[in-house]
């Protein structure tokens, strides 16, 4: 197999030239935008893409049709990429810059029990939301991680009569809209007990988590080589011993990753929690005691309240939530790469 290695990369000078022409294109587009009714940086972007494409097209004009197509395609592909990552960077940038305003020393240690949403930003906080999220995500994990991993073990180790069915259902359920899970728990649990509750929220999250955990743990368990399994049996080990002492320990970090990814997925779920746990202004730790707050529903509520300070609070909580997802992701990645290195 020959993977083309490329010493014939573009030289620094050529790259600078490319950059120079891109800047030229941007400047031209800026001038066009200034002299037209259009306005704003995004208009410059819209105009710049065709302008730079045309410039690069003309630069290689004499080299023939394929060179021209190549220049055009390269420019368009790069612009499309930049065009696409702009909103993501904008989301992350906005969350950080606007969220900072709401965060003060007491943001994590106060709740909204005595603070109306519109009051100044040096009062109140998200303690209740963090507690609620932790409780519900923890409960959801306690339910779903064992069930998900057992499903994975069933599909890869026991391979019993229901293997196909289990695999099909987990596959199918992993794409279920979260609102459907919320609606299910609402119409059974919440209506039956006539109360929103943390446990209802946890169950709806668990429903969303099981397929994620089951699928990723199946993927991980599939990577265990058959030799390792047979080696265990050849030494006279029972299947249960083999699974617990050989198979599961080999993929421990992979299973941790699957659980963490499951948590990352549900920690930001809003719709099902709106229907099951709702929102509450004070901190509480009892998941059976009526509505309970969480970070996503806090954001949702502060947004709906709609005045300047409450919206700032929403951004502040968004920053905390995004940070949480980021930490979980980095953690999963570190665990995975540690396993690869081993």
């Amino acid at each position: 197999m020959t993977t083309p290695q490329k010493p014939w990369k573009k030289s620094v000078g050529l790259r600078l030239l490319d950059g120079g022409f891109a800047v030229l294109g941007l400047t031209l587009s800026g001038l066009v935008v200034l002299t037209s009714p259009m306005a704003g940086p995004e208009a410059v972007g819209f105009v710049a893409i065709p302008v730079i494409a045309i410039i690069n097209f003309l630069r290689v004009f004499r080299e023939g049709a394929t060179a021209r197509m190549n220049a055009l395609a390269t420019t368009l592909i790069m612009s499309a990429f930049l065009f696409l990552i702009t909103p993501w960077l904008s989301v992350m940038g906005t969350v950080v810059s606007r969220g900072r305003a709401a965060i003060y020393s007491g943001f994590f240690t106060h709740d909204m029990r005595i603070t109306p949403p519109k009051s100044a930003l040096d009062m109140g906080g998200i303690k209740h939301a963090i507690i609620g999220t932790v409780i519900m995500v923890l409960l959801a994990s306690i339910i779903s991680v064992p069930l998900g991993i057992l499903s994975g073990v069933y599909v890869t180790e026991i391979r019993g009569r229901f293997t196909g069915l289990v695999r099909f259902i987990t596959q199918a359920m992993s794409g279920v809209p979260s609102i459907v899970a919320g609606l299910f728990v609402y119409s059974t649990f919440v209506l039956f007990f006539e109360s929103y509750s943390g446990i209802a929220g946890a169950i709806s999250l668990a429903i969303l988590m099981i397929p994620t955990v089951a699928r990723t743990s199946e993927e991980v368990l599939k990577l265990v080589s058959e030799d390792l399994r047979f080696a265990g049996y050849a030494l006279g080990s029972t299947q249960s011993r083999n699974v617990f002492k050989v198979v599961l320990p080999t993929v421990r970090s992979g299973l941790v990753t699957s659980a963490v990814l499951g948590v990352a997925r549900v920690a930001g779920e809003t719709a099902p929690l709106l229907m099951t746990a709702q929102y509450f202004i004070a901190s509480k730790t009892n998941p059976f005691d009526g509505p309970i707050a969480s970070l996503p529903t806090y954001i949702f509520n502060m947004f709906q309240t709609g005045n300047r300070n409450s919206v700032d609070r929403a951004w502040g909580a968004a920053l905390v939530l995004l940070g949480l997802v980021f930490v979980l992701f980095t953690f999963a990645r570190v665990v995975t790469s540690a396993r690869r290195r081993r």
């Binding site: 993501w88 989301v91 992350m92 969350v95 990352a264 997925r265 920690a267 930001g268 779920e269 809003t270 719709a271 996503p296 954001i299 949702f300 968004a318 939530l321 995004l322 997802v325 992701f329």
Partner: peptide, 8 residues
């Protein structure tokens, strides 16, 4: 980017 919660 795929993991950013939809509320954000």
């Amino acid at each position: 980017a795929a993991a950013i919660p939809s509320v954000i």
